[in-house]
Nucleic acid binder design. Structure first.
Lengths: 123, 123
DNA sequence: CGTTGACCTGGAGTGCACTCCAGGTGGGAT
DNA sequence: ATCCCACCTGGAGTGCACTCCAGGTCAACG
């Protein structure tokens, strides 16, 4: 018997990744997701790799990376292993952005706490 | 002599708050900022109170509160002191959102760190 | 007294990231 | 057999939060 590589239907990927089907199609259309394989009927069948990559995309998206930059990262990944240092640089830069976001939020949160305390002093 | 209340020109408020002049006008137009006072020539003169409120707006905006919700908060503030408990509720709910954001970012950041470490193992 | 520059208004335009739609196909359960 | 449902495509539409523009006013500086 032939080794059956595990594949995922669109519905399964929606379930797994939390992206809507429209978003998955959109990501494929703009090249954030490489052309996904199809079955005989032309329906998408996502590979394990596709799903893994979508996990990365979710992480970057949820940390506020713009699509344009994710596209650059996707291109580096496609270009092969020699781009690994560039990928590290990109991720480290992004990591600094995320760090800043966290610190900013924490500071704003202190302001909110003060405001709440101030309001509480009125009742 | 009459007590001269301190007022701010548009340029000063832009400087102080980091909002663009267009954004300030936009906020006034949609009612996030109450009708700002004018001088004889019809130019805006922001009060101390306006600037203080813009500080709050900046905090809420930078922590991701949608404008629609900021508008609700603004209405509570305008409605008078009896809405203070409601304002506290709103801010506490928002505080929980901010907390979630921070925790989410921290978790995603761990993923990024792992990815960087993984890439580093290749060179 | 002239020019520059900050400001005004109403309204149109922008960028991002989706999201929806019309019209159509194919396959599995009843 | 037939019905439904998941899926397909290309393209249009949406929502948010601004941002820009045209055409105009006013005041201070040199």
């Amino acid at each position: 018997m032939l080794g059956r590589v595990s594949v995922y239907t669109p519905a399964e990927v929606v379930e797994e990744t939390g992206f809507s089907l429209d978003t998955l199609r959109y990501y494929e259309k703009i090249g954030l997701l490489e052309r996904v394989g199809r079955n005989a009927a032309g329906q998408r069948r996502f590979s394990e790799e596709d799903v893994g990559w979508l996990g990365m995309v979710r992480c970057l998206r949820d940390t506020g990376m713009p699509i344009a930059q994710m596209l650059r990262f996707a291109e580096l990944v496609r270009a092969g292993d020699h781009t690994i240092p560039d990928r590290v640089k990109l991720l480290e830069e992004h990591d600094r952005q995320v760090q800043k976001q966290i610190e900013n939020l924490a500071e704003r949160q202190r302001y909110i706490h003060h405001k709440i305390a101030y309001y509480r002093s009125f009742c």
